[in-house]
Amino acid sequence: MERHFDQELADLKENLLRMAGFTEQSVAQALKALVQRDDALAKKVDADDATLDKLEIEIDDRCIKLLALRQPTATDLRFITMAMRLSGELERIGDQAVNIAHRAEELNREPLLKPLVDIPRMAEHAQGMIHDSLDAFVYAKPNLAREVIKRDEKVDLLNRQLHRELTSFMIEDPHTITRCLNLMSVAHNLERIADHATNIAEDIVYLYEGRDIRHQNE
């Protein structure tokens, strides 16, 4: 039987997807601002964050009302609680995008240290992870989510590698310290983004399988 509640859940999902799309876009624009040295785009990412915050509040408010009014159970309950978590993760990814945009603005004030290679690679991984974890959500593919979780390792590896490389840069030439620190910060932001994507993936597994797979190999 089709319930009115189903329509409300579908609306909630739609809102979540809009927020997800917007988050992905923010991350992409922040990186574009960095790579193409585009200050205006960086400022836009900063400004757009308010919208993401608003969406998060809106989704959480909706979830609380649904919890209070519909007393959801089973899949419905998991979906609504996961929606609240998802909105939080997405909002934080958005915050990381804002951080990257800020770093980009600072980097843009100085000449390019060197052509960016590892950062875009890391970014590609992190973005892929966001994208796939959200796909796992949309298409109800918990296995895709599991696979995303495994990919976090790679981003961590790249981050450490970049760390070492930038450290050696700084040792060689102290003039690069500011730029290297900014780039390290960006790498760190990307690593955080990948972590959030991992969290999302874990939530998706819980949503569709009802199994909590967090903190299992610690």
């Binding site: 189903d6 859940l9 999902k13 799309g21 876009q25 298409y139 109800a140």
Partner: peptide, 27 residues
């Protein structure tokens, strides 16, 4: 649940595309 929740991804991408064009999220 799946039936009701499977809003196609186009909505998610659609939203992103739309914002790119209009430069603001239609709320």
């Amino acid at each position: 649940m799946n039936a009701s929740l499977t809003v196609t991804q186009s909505k998610r991408e659609g939203a992103a595309v739309k914002t790119k064009e209009s430069q603001s999220l239609p709320l």
